[in-house]
Design a binder for these strands. Structure first.
Length: 862
RNA sequence: GCGAAAGUGGCGGAAUUGGUAGACGCGCAGGAUUCAGGAUCCUGUGGGAUAACACCCGUGGGGGUUCGAUUCCCCCCUUUCGCACCA
């Protein structure tokens, strides 16, 4: 054993050993409790970053801990390997996406291995392999058969920079989630997955997920956005037909003084044709139709509209009211037409004011009287219906019911439920993704590729020009095919699938990654699913996590699995960030910290000029504040990198990078190493499990502390994931053991027990150094056979209690009493404490509050 | 605008159900060791006051409930995140 802690060689030793022993391989064992822990798989961008290190360190603690507790642990890893960066690399550097991706996977896999993560690499998957994506295609065909996959012409989000369609979930603030360009709108024929079919179930089953953070549940609930209301027809004046509107405020229908349509509404142009407004309407439509919804208001919320020249009838008031187009009405939601109630909807109010449209108050609040002239804003809350014919006098909530029922009974409309959730557009005009297994034949129409012809492989003869459009359409060998039905000449679909399809079921593939007859083996899935603990960034709160839930339910309905929810427990870890500093001369300071101090100001280490202290930023290339985990591992070893990320903050919070913090983690491991090195000769001569019966009071307390620490660390890891406090407790115990050092034989025995406990408790966190020290102390049990330490309740029993004594809630003294004494004894001693006496003398004791085993509060008066 | 989370020493963070606020780590200060630096070890470290105690103040601000509030309730301020014309 070396005197100094030298992580490099020992980490290599253990990694090699685990690899050669295939220590983390796992098979289903029906008689052993299973535990499936999964971290979100990475995109193979080239190098791992600190976010990965954090994510996988957390997962590895859970996996190793559960393994030590006797669970049969499935802990797999793979690659979310399709996506745009590979294609961009091809365009920019002429490397084939496949080669680029393979190379990255190879490099990153090595980096992950150097972290000592306990993955079963036998189960590794990469979504870009035909063995994987053929099942994307197979699932697509099953969806197609069940009408869960369909093609429709629609207005879609279009990223002009990526030159592809985006799903709603991929548009952030009107910008592309990937490249941040402003998203435009384009009318295209696209493939969709009918996720809305599952809207209600996706919403309802959120209640079955108590192991998910509330934040994520709320975000999903909002994203699905259920609204209960009614659809009502407003008959057109002077022509056939009606405009169907959707509303949740039927109770305000007597106040509807006009109707607003979306720019894309199919009747927009026909309503105006033949009226004097025809030209104005055409211009209005042309102005807005290519702009995506979020970018339509020139300024925040600015309302604009145009009269169509046509009228319809409010079926409740029988009044003829004008029909407008309005820039804020969404075609995608409801029916694309809304009844406008200016008095009770803020948007309609602003619109009515701008275009001088009538305002009718039909809801009165309890404590004030509204009139149309005096309104400065819409009254949107509930109240009592007025000026509403036979419905006047009803409360809003009752009126909603009755109006909807009346409409239904009289053929004016029906009750309706709408969701904000839209169907998931999955077509992408890119190369590096799963080809959609569809063939278009002039005679037979849309023909699915027969299952025995899967996979539809990506062709190799595609030029990467970056000039836009679907690259697959450039490959003749790919496009030109015979129709599977009639054998005639036909054309292959050239769009590929959204890469989120790949990640929507990969957790199922891991249960039988080499299965060739189905996406996964049902029996294996029945054993392993659901994922007991899923860990990843909160940025996937709606995107990936919603899609994966949808897929799981859809696959269940195809009879492929019994699981209805894929992830029983979810941990969303925070970002890794770093403070930024910028020197006017040298730009972002990196690597290295500024010199100086908070008081005297921070200076550039190169030129001494004062630097501007930036905000704490997420690590990103542009901010130049990236810490490369590889450098970190080279310098300090994987154990230190793991320990730091786990110790510096609880996993769900953001973690701010600190060079000194890393030093601290390294120092702790060094101290532990040195302590074992110095004492190992002494300890080797002691038998294990010395009886603590004959110990001094001090050593008995130390022995208690060992067991207290086991309990604390166990509780902190299991379910709570407070790794930072678990590690703190281990450090505390170590400090106490170091203070005792050696001494009497019984002291040595207790200290040895304590150190061995510490080493075992550290195994999930810093596996290499912990296993090395364990071995150095003479344990030759198989490297991963060590059981998680158990604590004994007996060993926790306190001999003495420290009782805090308060007077009127302020701490005035502390007394130590034997643990078995009575409450009366404790109160008597508290009142007799010299410090306490000073505060109660001459005053009347009104009351004495006793909190068992903790404190006495003496309430005095005067 | 709506929804959610969070504000605790110089810093990261503890305090699990209302019961010793500041565990653990970093930083800082003093000391030991050292030719010196680094490393290591010891001691101290919320603020005020003091020779030292006693004591006073203190968990964003202001109220409240309670014997007792970082924790519960109300109002306000700040920050972060999510949604953003969803009728």
């Amino acid at each position: 054993m070396e005197e100094r802690y030298q992580p490099e060689a020992l980490e290599r030793k253990w990694q090699t050993l685990w690899e050669s022993e295939q220590a983390f391989r796992v098979q289903a064992q029906p008689n052993k409790p299973k535990y499936y822990v999964l971290e979100m798989f990475p995109y193979p961008s080239g190098r791992i970053h600190m976010g990965h290190v954090r994510n996988y360190s957390i997962g590895d603690v859970v996996a190793r801990y559960k393994r030590m507790c006797g669970f049969n642990v499935l802990h797999p890893m793979g690659w979310d390997a399709f996506g745009l960066p590979a294609e961009n690399a091809a365009i920019e550097r002429g490397v084939h996406p496949q080669a680029w991706t393979d190379e990255n996977i190879l490099y990153m896999k090595n980096q992950l291995k150097r972290m000592g993560l306990s993955y079963d690499w036998e189960r590794e998957i990469a979504t870009c392999t035909p063995e994987y994506y053929r099942w994307n295609q197979w699932i697509f065909l099953q969806f197609f058969k069940k009408d869960l996959a369909y093609k429709k012409n629609s207005f879609v989000n279009w990223c002009p920079s990526c030159e592809t369609v985006l799903a709603n979930e991929q548009v952030i603030d009107g910008h592309c989630w990937r490249c941040d360009s402003a998203v435009t709108q384009k009318e295209l024929e696209q493939w969709f997955f009918r996720i809305t079919e599952y809207a209600e179930e996706l919403l309802r089953d959120l209640e079955q997920l108590p192991g998910w953070p509330d934040k994520v549940l709320i975000m999903q609930r909002n994203w699905i956005g259920k609204s209960v209301g009614a659809e009502i027809d407003f008959p057109l004046v002077g022509r056939e037909g009606a405009l169907r509107i959707f509303t949740t405020r039927q109770d305000t229908i007597f106040g509807a003084t006009f109707v607003s349509l979306a720019v894309e509404h199919p009747m927009a142009l026909s309503l105006a044709s033949g009226t004097s407004q025809a030209l104005a309407v055409r211009n209005f439509v042309d102005r807005f139709k290519d702009i995506s919804q979020t970018n339509r208001g020139a300024e925040e919320g600015e309302k604009e509209g145009v009269f169509t020249g046509a009228y319809c009838t409010n079926p409740f008031t029988q009044q003829n009211i004008p029909i407008y187009l309005a820039n804020f009405v969404l075609m995608e939601y409801g029916t694309g037409a809304v009844m406008a109630v200016p008095a009770h909807d803020q948007r309609d109010f602003e619109f009515a004011k701008k275009y001088r449209l009538p305002i009718r108050v039909v809801i009165q609040p309890a404590n004030q009287k509204l009139d149309a002239e005096g309104l400065s804003e819409a009254y949107v809350d509930d109240g009592v219906m007025v000026d509403s014919g036979e419905f006047s006098g009803l409360a809003s909530s009752v009126g909603k019911e009755q109006i909807a029922a009346y409409a239904e009974a009289n053929g004016l409309g029906k009750k309706a439920i709408r969701y904000r959730l839209r169907d998931w557009g999955v077509s992408r005009q890119r190369y590096w993704g799963t080809p959609i297994p569809i063939i278009y034949c002039n005679r037979c129409g849309t023909v699915p590729v027969p299952e025995d012809q899967l996979p539809v492989k990506l062709p190799d003869d595609v030029p990467f020009t970056g000039k836009g459009g679907s690259p697959l359409s450039e490959s003749k060998s790919f496009v030109e095919v015979d129709c599977p039905q009639c054998g005639g000449r036909a054309r292959r679909e050239t769009d590929t699938m959204d890469t989120f399809v790949d990640s929507s079921w990969y957790f199922l593939r891991y249960v039988s990654p080499h299965e060739t007859h189905a996406p996964f083996d049902k029996r294996q899935a029945d054993y392993w699913m659901a994922v007991d603990q899923y860990i990843g960034g909160v940025e996937h709160a709606v995107l990936h996590l919603l899609y994966a839930r949808f897929f799981t339910k859809a696959l269940r309905d195809l009879g492929l699995t019994q699981t209805g929810e894929p992830f029983t427990n979810l941990l969303t870890q925070g970002m890794v960030s770093k403070e930024t500093y910028r020197c006017p001369e040298h730009g972002w300071l990196f690597p290295g910290e500024p010199v100086g101090s908070e008081k005297d100001g921070w200076k550039c280490p190169q030129c001494g000029r004062p630097v501007e202290k930036g905000r704490v930023e997420k690590m990103s290339k542009s901010k130049k504040n990236i810490i490369d985990p590889e450098d970190l591992v080279n310098l300090y070893g994987a154990d230190t990198a793991r320990l730091f990320t786990l110790f510096a903050a609880p996993p769900e919070k953001d973690l701010e990078w600190s060079d000194q913090g890393v030093e601290g983690a390294y120092r702790f491991l060094s101290r532990l190493w040195r302590f074992v090195y110095q004492h190992r000769a002494i300890w080797s001569s002691i038998a294990n499990n010395g009886a603590p019966g004959e110990l001094t009071a001090e050593l008995r307390e130390l022995h208690r502390m060992i067991h207290r620490t086991i309990k604390k660390v166990t509780d902190d890891i299991d379910g709570r994931f407070h790794f930072n406090t678990a590690i703190a407790a281990i450090m505390e115990l170590f400090n106490a053991l170091s203070a005792v050092g050696s001494g009497s034989d019984s002291a040595k025995t207790v200290v040895k027990e304590g150190v061995e406990t510490i080493i075992a408790l550290l195994m999930p966190f810093v596996p290499h150094v912990a296993h090395e020290l364990w071995q150095q102390l003479g344990h030759n049990d198989g490297s991963l056979e060590t059981a998680w330490p158990a604590y004994s309740e007996d060993a926790l029993v306190e001999e003495q209690l420290l009782i805090v004594v308060q007077v009127n809630g302020k701490i005035r003294g502390k007394i130590t009493v034997p643990a078995e004494v009575t409450q009366e004894y404790i109160e008597r001693n508290a009142l007799a404490d010299p410090k306490v006496i000073g505060f109660i003398e001459g005053r009347t004791v009104r009351r004495v509050v006793y909190v068992p085993r903790r404190l006495v509060n003496i309430v005095v008066e005067g």
